[in-house]
Design a protein around this nucleic acid. Structure first.
Length: 846
RNA sequence: GGGCGUUUAGCUCAGUUGGUUAGAGCAUCUGCCUUACAAGCAGAGGGUCUGGGGUUCGAGUCCCUAAACGCCCACCA
């Protein structure tokens, strides 16, 4: 038998396990098997970088589900993959090339894409190694990439079909422009930040008059694009100006004063400048009044040729300063009122978003979203969120959603399958026949392809075996921050294209923060590399910590001390196993036909625990399941059963129970700690499989519930605890004499108390002090000289007992309580009352 | 401006459908090298559950209300 190290050595244990699992194909699904299917698609990490703690958390939860379901007899598919992350990866590659002195546009589309593929392969390999470190059971034979041929085909199919159905259209609208990445964005890719700014009150003089309108704006530099000034029709203050013209400051130009519902009498001065090309509301106003749209910005947010020469080429910031100065110099600036307000920034590049009018491709959302809302009304068709409150996040989005701008002015991504020839347009799976067709330069939003992930990875649009068996997926696991980007879109796409929800359950977790509750960020330098934690404490410790620290859906504050504590737990298991293994090496079967009371006790406890653990596992409440296993293992099994077992190690039942329960613990723990459980399982003399991964999850068995023995041993333990307490408080040493008086067989108590050598038969003197219990019908006497402090302590104890007795008597005298409360609760109170009375009696006698 | 979450021991977190005197880990204090584990064992102290009101025999748990912190959504010129 292999000599096990005293201290748990995760390096030794985790070495080679992953390769072993892979080699034996334990991670592979079997689409031909008759077993029920259980499928999860991995949220594909961006190939932008490497995995962080959030990923580790996300994949650990999924691995726990997969391993648990596998052990429960399901044919499991866990499909891995990565996301090409169009804008994010493109930004990284642009920067890498720039560092080498290469400009993207001079480099050319083809070579640039090669550089992107290089980047993808590099980071893909790193990510695969990281997955292996964490021990996650991914079926690599099914691995996909959001930009591979299959996904590309699916993307084109959706695009073409939607186009033909009128669900995808090309149009000129105000979109969110990222002047850094020089691309359009969707509303989800815009994050609002509070910015210090000001309301600039500007004089718009009436034509041929000294009168003026006070126009307030936060963006004075956009006045060059103004084509009207609007007031509300009902606004008495401005009625007389309607239909007249005002002179646009700094421009030799007049624009009309119009009435429009958009002008709110309550807001500002009630006069609003209309810039149809740079504001979504103004765009609508412009449509209603047929106003000219003057774009005043270049794609990099510098001023273009539509502004006066002196401002051309300036950045929007520089232009604003100059405009303010020029307005002030001209006496046209009425006042500057400082404010803070929310301004949209690009989620990726961080720069301020410029609303611009552009021709882009859109998905018409209303119908698609309504379909989801309809299906969410029925429990058989809805996506079940865990925790359920996140359903509201999705539904709200479905209610307010806008048409989705899907075209991106990038190169890295799925190129839009549209071709142009003059005014003609062709949308199709392949390039049209004939000369002169030019393909659309743009690519699609990266989320357009990832929205198809739950089914395109299974072969859709072909009706494959995989698709039939594993769609809808059983569960999706992701963070709440991804709901708007991804979960929502997978849902409407799956439901539209396949007529069914993409996954039955959606397990949502939170974000990981640092110990002060701050987000991890590069600028704070508070980032934690999960693989540093793996190096320090092992993957099992990190996994158990991540899976059990918080309840589903809530944020986690990262605490390295807790990973350390988890290592202690693993070490505890390791040593318990060491003890068990060294005592059961010769058994070749498990014989539970004859059991001692303590055997029955631990068997009962094990079965109760198992039942609850399964309940929690099925509900994705891994923090509850983990806690139960922890308590059972440490308290019941290690602290009591193993201690009791030490006195009957030669007995067959003891050996069998030790082996049986240890096996059960390993199996319950395996989804959380795959490495150490696999190691110990491999050393067991009796087991059902070669690998714990493919072994069967323990089954709850009523046969091994022994209520009577459970209660007897519980009572004995209770007695042991109270005497240990007295023993500690009175410094009872090994040498002190005690007398143990019992009616029943309470040998166990003597053993657990380790007082065998202290016991004397003859009665002790008059100063004997007594510990006793009615439950086990036993008393212990020992000599004690009562100090003043003891007397005080005793007095306090007596008083609190009296109080408790009074409280309980009053409660039991309350008819309302006795009649309305459940019987078992009331009975418990009665029992408790009697015990308190006995205890009081004993104290008074001492 | 809407919506959501959090607030429980010194710290980080649990706490099922309301039901014994609210739990865990870490930290603290006391005593132990007891032949699996001193990163361990045996004990102890420490919270009235953010404040206020209500429902109930009974509230950390349900309802109303206030506050602090955080998040999401929203075109405030």
């Amino acid at each position: 038998m292999k000599e096990l190290s005293k201290k748990y050595d995760f390096n030794e244990v985790e070495k080679d396990k992953y390769e072993y699992w892979l080699k034996n194909d334990y991670f592979k699904c079997d689409e031909d098997s008759k077993k029920d299917a259980y499928a999860i698609v991995l949220p594909p990490p961006n190939v932008t970088g490497v995995l962080h703690l959030g990923h580790a958390w996300d994949v650990t939860l999924q691995d726990i589900i997969i391993r648990y379901k596998k052990m429960n007899g399901y044919d499991c598919l866990w499909l891995p993959g990565m996301d090409h992350a169009a804008i994010a990866t493109e930004a990284k590659v642009v920067k890498r090339l720039k560092d080498k002195g290469i400009n993207k546009y001079e480099y050319g589309r083809e070579k640039f894409l090669e550089a992107c593929w290089d980047w993808t392969h590099e980071h893909g390999n790193i990510i695969r190694k990281q997955w292996a470190k964490l021990g996650i059971a991914l079926d690599y034979s099914k691995e996909r990439f959001t930009l591979d041929d299959g996904l590309s085909k699916a993307v084109r199919k959706v695009f073409v079909d939607y186009y033909n159905e009128g669900l995808i259209y090309r149009g000129e609208k105000i979109i969110n422009w990222d002047p850094e990445a020089k691309t359009a964005l969707s509303t989800e890719e815009v994050v609002y930040k509070t910015v210090e700014s000001a309301f600039y009150h500007i004089k718009y003089k009436l034509e041929d008059s000294d009168e003026y309108l006070d126009v307030a704006t936060t963006r004075p530099e956009t006045l060059f694009g103004d084509t009207a000034v609007a007031v509300n029709e009902a606004d008495e203050r401005y009625k007389r100006y309607v239909g007249k013209n005002v002179v646009l400051p700094l421009m030799d130009k007049v624009i009309p004063v119009i009435t429009d519902e958009h002008a709110d009498m309550e807001k500002g001065t009630g006069v609003v400048k209309i810039t149809p090309a740079h504001d979504p509301n103004d765009f609508e106003v412009g449509l209603r009044h047929n106003l000219e749209r003057i774009c005043i910005l270049n794609d990099d947010a510098t001023m273009n040729e539509n502004v006066p020469k002196k401002y051309q080429g300036l950045s929007r910031e520089a232009c604003r300063e100059l405009v303010i100065k020029d307005l002030s110099d001209a006496g046209l600036m009425l006042s500057i009122e400082p404010i803070t307000h929310e301004v949209g920034h690009s989620e990726r590049t961080g720069v301020m978003i410029e609303p611009m009018i552009k021709k882009q491709w859109f998905v018409k959302m209303r119908g698609l979203a309504d379909n989801v809302l309809e299906l969410q009304k029925n429990k058989d068709t809805k996506v079940h969120f865990v925790p359920s409150r996140y359903e509201k996040t999705m539904n709200h989005w479905m209610e307010i959603t806008y048409d989705w701008c899907i075209s991106r002015q990038l190169w890295w991504g799925h190129r839009i399958p549209a071709w142009y020839k003059g005014d003609e347009i062709y949308v199709g799976m392949e390039a049209p026949k004939g000369d002169g067709w030019v393909q659309d330069e743009d690519v699609l939003d990266t989320w357009f392809s990832s929205a198809l992930w739950p089914f395109a990875t299974l072969g859709w649009p072909d009706n494959t075996k995989l698709l039939q068996k594993y769609y809808p997926n059983s569960c999706l696991v992701t963070g709440y921050d991804i709901i708007p980007f991804w979960v929502n879109r997978m849902t409407f796409q799956g439901e539209k294209l396949l007529g069914e929800r993409p996954f039955k359950d959606c397990l949502i977790h939170g974000l990981i923060r640092d110990k002060q509750g701050r987000k991890f960020s590069k600028s704070l330098g508070n980032g934690i590399d999960p693989f540093d934690m793996v190096r320090l404490y092992g993957a099992d410790s990190l996994r158990y910590y991540l899976a059990t620290d918080v309840a589903p859906g809530t944020d986690m504050r990262f605490d390295e001390e807790k990973i350390k504590a988890t290592w202690n737990f693993v070490n505890k298991i390791w040593n318990a196993a060491r003890f068990v293994l060294s005592n059961i090496s010769e058994i070749d079967s498990i014989d539970l036909s004859i059991l001692k009371p303590e055997d029955k006790w631990i068997m009962s406890k094990f079965n109760h625990t198992l039942k609850d653990v399964k309940k929690f596992m099925d509900r994705y409440e891994f923090h509850n399941a983990g806690k139960l296993i922890y308590d059972f293992t440490w308290s019941y099994f290690c602290d009591y059963y193993i201690e009791m077992a030490k006195y009957s190690l030669e007995t067959t039942s003891t050996k069998s129970v030790l082996c049986y329960v240890l096996t059960g613990i390993l199996k319950m723990l395996h989804p959380f700690m795959p490495f150490v459980t696999e190691e110990i399982y491999g050393l067991l003399p009796v087991k059902d499989q070669t690998s714990i991964m493919i072994s069967e999850y323990p089954k709850y068995s009523k046969k091994y519930i022994f209520e009577a023995e459970e209660r007897i041993v519980d009572d004995q333990i209770e007695f042991v605890k109270s005497f240990r307490n007295v023993k500690a408080e009175n410094n009872i040493t090994k040498e002190m004499k005690v007398m143990f008086d019992t009616e029943d067989d309470n040998d166990l108590i003597v053993k657990l108390l380790k007082i065998k050598d202290n016991i004397v038969k003859e009665p002790l003197g008059m100063k004997a002090y007594k510990v006793f219990s009615t439950r086990v019908k036993a008393q212990i006497f020992f000599e004690k000289v009562e100090s003043e402090a003891d007397k005080v302590a005793k007095e306090i104890q007596i008083n609190s007992l009296k109080e408790s007795i009074m409280r309980r008597e009053k409660l039991l005298a309350n008819e309302n309580y006795v009649n309305k409360a459940p019987k078992n609760i009331v009975d418990l109170d009665r029992k408790k009352l009697q015990e308190e009375k006995d205890k009081l009696q004993a104290l008074l006698e001492n």
